[in-house]
Write a protein that binds this DNA or RNA. Structure first.
Lengths: 315, 315
DNA sequence: CTGAAAGCGCTTACAG
DNA sequence: CTGAAAGCGCTTACAG
């Protein structure tokens, strides 16, 4: 492992000169020295030790995102991808940790002394406190005001189904629900909107994605499905039951995933634009002087309908 | 941030005693001391600094998995999940990095001085050398002998389609292929097997998953699809073209994903058992005394057919 | 314009 | 049975 000392030796300068020059504080050195040091670092393939640096600084440049989802959809994956790019732009390193049921595993991230921890799901109350007490910025329910967004999703599903002329609505949720986030809020959003606008609301359909099940018997209903996978599974049930989409039954999913586009019929779905919350997040992390508060910015949920063949055209 | 020194003070012992006891070397201390130290650590919520520890040890207990896939399927996600659990069992911390096209981002992991880097995809040749030179164990093409496994997948698809009585075979690959790993090897595996056994091999079908396309015109053919998503998309094309599955056309995917099970018809697919290679990997990382070699263990690819409704029953 | 020194938190070989 | 000391690689305030 090549250390700063070796770079210093090769360039014929002191250890501290190397440190300063490589960190961009070149103003106190001659151009010649600066070049020599940079050259030496390049030739040796020097990478400053994260350990040494963060020990000295008391904080590292690592941001850890804890992914709670048991399965990551394209939406979330894109988000996490882009977040990484945004963070890289401001010189931060983005790492993912798969959330485990074990506290020990989760707490291991404290050892890293990350600048911030972003959680895509809920954190046990104790852990949040532990992080905060360690001076780690915590951004919880990271997909920004998750609850509000989930409600908006449900509302938009309901309003689309209403506009498309389905007189009744049934939410569809996956069971067992371990690992699915926001089921309740999406369902409540759809249900409440439908009630407010005089749609008939049928009992929630529960679907076990692991089992193929042919039973389905509710014509002229719009199904507000938890996500595109659930929607696809419902399409299968509906077909097996001999009902037709979108005439007898409308199906709307969530995620604007590949599945929605490649399915036949294609699935009407909800797209979440998470860009705003991402920007807000990076802002907050970088300027994070209130490390013991959760993200105070709740940008307006930005959700839109992507029309597919699984619902009638509105209007 | 609570340090070992604070624990020592609270327990009324020296800094080194804390270190030793918390690392399990309790034999040189009285039970009473051990308990007092552990108590103090617990009360204070002490988490040893990763930076301090790895600085001292010269190596950290972090294993970084670089995920190359532009989209993570359930198969890969499960694998990564389980790998994390396996590593946790031996006291290692598993972190994910989303592979970026930027070398700077990728090389940032060197700063962490990880014990090992696991790559689900190919590494640029330069980077591999850089890692190895830094004494980092590199496990490349992590899904163990990726090439061999991909070939086996293709072969198994072909042999299943053959047994199911389809006289011809056409591979189906997604385009543009950025982000899809192993397309060539799977295709070659299917093609070669088919040729060897006297199946007629049709030109490869290219499908753009982003576009809905109705053209399809090859009855009595078995389609060896790159993965379940591609298979689902082909089902759509076939239905739109008025052909029937599995009578006119057989479709077999790869991944044994949820999609295969919830689709109507359900999709015959290939399941990859990655457990063996995972175990081998952990072994190799833990006992890694040859840090500059790639994983020497190439466990036999373990792939099986999961029969769905999208192909005729074999035999 | 540049270097010597201190100290971040940790572990380990050594001294008592 | 326990503590004092050294040193991992880094950065920064200070001295020249």
């Amino acid at each position: 492992m090549v250390s700063g000392a070796e770079v210093a030796q090769r360039a014929g300068v002191s250890r501290s000169a190397v440190s300063q020059i490589l960190n961009g504080h070149t103003e106190r050195f001659t151009d010649e020295t600066v070049t020599r040091v940079r050259e030496a670092a390049r030739e040796l393939g020097y990478r400053p030790s994260h350990a040494g640096r963060s020990l000295r600084r008391g904080r590292s440049d690592v941001v850890v995102t804890m992914v709670h989802e048991r399965a990551v959809g394209p939406q979330l994956w894109d988000f996490v991808n882009s977040l990484g790019e945004d963070l890289a732009e401001v010189g931060l390193t983005h790492l993912l940790q798969i959330a485990s049921p074990s506290d020990a595993v989760r707490e291991a991230v404290i050892g890293l002394r990350p600048l911030a921890v972003v959680c895509t799901g809920p954190l046990p109350p104790g852990l949040h406190g532990t992080f905060a007490a360690s001076g780690i910025t915590v951004i919880e329910g990271a997909l920004s005001a998750r609850e509000a967004m989930d409600r908006s999703i449900g509302e938009l599903q309901a309003s689309h189904l209403f506009a498309a002329g389905y007189p009744a609505l049934a939410p569809v949720r996956p069971v067992p629900d371990a690992g699915y986030l926001g089921t309740a809020a999406r369902e409540a959003g759809a249900r409440d909107w439908a009630v407010r606008h005089g749609m008939r609301v049928l009992p929630t359909v529960e679907i076990d994605l692991a089992a193929v099940d042919a039973s389905f018997d509710s014509p002229d209903v719009g199904l507000a499905c938890y996500n595109d996978e659930v929607a696809l599974a419902m399409l299968g049930r509906i077909a097996r039951a001999g009902r037709s989409v979108p005439d007898d039954v409308g199906v709307v999913g969530v995620d604007d995933s590949l599945i929605a586009h490649i399915s036949a019929p294609t699935i009407t779905t909800i797209r979440l634009n998470l860009e705003i919350s991402r920007k807000a997040m990076v802002q907050y992390i970088v300027g994070g002087d209130e490390p013991d508060e959760t993200l105070p910015i709740a940008p307006p949920p930005d959700v839109t309908v992507v029309q597919g063949e699984s619902t009638r055209l509105p209007g």
